[in-house]
Nucleic acid binder design. Structure first.
Lengths: 198, 198, 198, 198
DNA sequence: CATGAATGAGGGTTCATTCAT
DNA sequence: GATGAATGAACCCTCATTCAT
């Protein structure tokens, strides 16, 4: 996933702000909101912790901002597959790679963190409700349906299939991010088998 | 009145200890060790926070005890499938259900938390190393191999297949645990397709 | 110093109470009031900590009671030298030995603790004020004066001399009690030299 | 405005650190490590308790730092007498005065506390072992021996004499520190008599 | 009487947040 | 803007004290 598109970037006028957000994303996505200390973010960004508060009112606000951005980014990633050439399955493979890739992963990890952690700000809960799994499912519905028609994609309720696909995909990132040695990313083939079916 | 006799005291201790562990499992498994406050566990158990320390020396010890128990329980769950009748696939389906079930889930969630959280006690890290994914993979190897011979299970490196299967399974719990409404557990069929292959 | 005379004993009707006080004296005298936990006293007495509260309302009360008893005991020890035969210097040597002896030491140590610790109960402060050094000095004044007349004891203000003698004596117990190896009790001869003078 | 430059910050840090150490010395020396609460030190220093932890990692570290400094200071005090003019006895008198003086007393009291308290950090125990009474005795040995040759100092084992002298001296501080009115410091003359002998 | 389970005030420590410089 | 000193709420844990049995 490309880091951010122009529309998202325009709301980051400040280079410093971007620098902070990048650092915060890195730390939050790995450690979650509770496990992250503001000092960690400051250290990662190479600035003093005091400066964080010139750009973000609070830890919660910073986290919330990032989640919001990640949500938009994720949606964009979904949409972007429609700009591609190729068969539906090609598009899904592309998306899979995109999500699991080094670049896009932090955003999806952050979303995962937001979803699976208690103690996130109220605003984040609202965002999660708003950008529910359903909204992503809806985004992918056309391509999956098309794939089912061509026979590339397994038959059955496509919404359920997408839901399963996304759940598994996002879950995998977390495992992969933590402990490269113990867990291996299931080979794409195995993952795709869920989708393509027998 | 004469003080309680040993047996009675023992019983109280055991009951309380179990009560605390149950409460702690519930909270730890959802919120992780950092996100869990001793007061939460106390509240969940319906006792004062001070009493926790009559039964467990520290938060770390409590967490470690639970992880240890969960590890053993998980291993037992793996082993138990060999007592079942039925085809290899039946056994795997049973295990899947077992892990995702309301009952066993907290234990697997706790293991997940232990694996993916920063700030866990050293002892827990050792436990994780000891009961690595590999040990679980080894446990399931026979049944998967058998399934591959009968053709029920997809061909390919069985260790990789099991690893993928377990990774996905355990991470799904986390998503599922939080938010029953938004996420639905992928239907077993779809999940099984990872394993069965075309 | 004999542990306790009859008069003091009569107020300990209960064997248990005596047992507790003995244990408490042992611990308090070494560790002071802040460094002593009720559980330590209970363990030393071989009873449960709950039982302490059947005999003493609080830690403070227990400490205060002991200080009171020690004060009386100390005064008795002073008085007792007048029952002895021998020269003034003999009497003082006897008192010195008595105070530094295994038996009487805890009482004097407790007084020392009470005197040198902050955070003792108000009542103890009153006791210290009441049984000030002056009261002990007064007690010994006759024998020191007599010694000065016979030339056994150094000349000079006898009150000052006694004050110095007692201060040094009580201080020494503490050092001796802690760390047998590092500190050695100054030989009586050296100590006596303070008193006898050139 | 530009942030403080390095030198300014360094100065603030140093000043604060000194301010805290001064306050801590005052409280620790009187109340010992167990009887001292971090809030007392903070109050004495006129700062918030949180700030203490910007300058010292823990209560133990603060205590240890002070003990270390006190040990060095004590050794320096011992050594300094060799820079003085005068007879051996003059030097010892000077040292006596130095130790009992308002200024140096807290350091010696702290050492006393470290020596006689339970619950001091392991590092402090090592320091005590390292700077044992013996090391101080060794330091004073030359001047005492010289005094014995000139006849100013009493004959006998000089190590024993010094040990007695130091023990008494250090324990006197404790009594004296608390209660200026009740106890008077034994006049130097009387104290010196221990050393000079008949 | 005797026990130890149970409580909760309070102390050590961390860390989000504020603010003087 | 930028820094890091400073604050204080909140967390883990201890221990004096209470109380059911």
């Amino acid at each position: 996933m490309a880091p951010l598109n122009d529309e998202q970037l325009h709301q980051i006028r400040d280079e410093r702000k971007e620098q902070i957000m990048e650092a915060a994303l890195k730390v939050f996505s790995r450690r979650g909101i509770v496990g992250t200390k503001m000092s960690m973010i400051a250290a990662e960004a190479g600035i003093s912790h005091g400066l964080l508060y010139h750009y973000f009112k609070s830890k919660d606000e910073l986290f919330t901002t990032l989640v919001q951005m990640a949500m938009l980014g994720a949606q964009d990633a979904m949409k972007s597959i429609y700009d591609l050439q190729g068969s539906p399955l090609d598009k899904i493979k592309y998306l899979t790679k995109e999500i699991l890739d080094e670049g896009g992963r932090p955003y999806f990890m952050l979303i995962y963190q937001a979803r699976t952690s208690e103690g996130v700000p109220e605003k984040v809960k609202e965002l999660i409700a708003q950008y529910s799994l359903k909204s992503f499912v809806d985004e992918l519905l056309p391509v999956f349906k098309e794939g089912q028609q061509t026979g590339e994609i397994a038959a059955g309720d496509p919404a359920e299939l997408i839901s399963a696909y996304l759940s598994v995909l996002s879950s995998l990132m977390m495992l992969n991010a933590q402990d490269e040695e113990t867990y291996r990313l299931p080979s794409s083939d195995i993952l795709m088998r869920m989708v393509t079916g027998p």
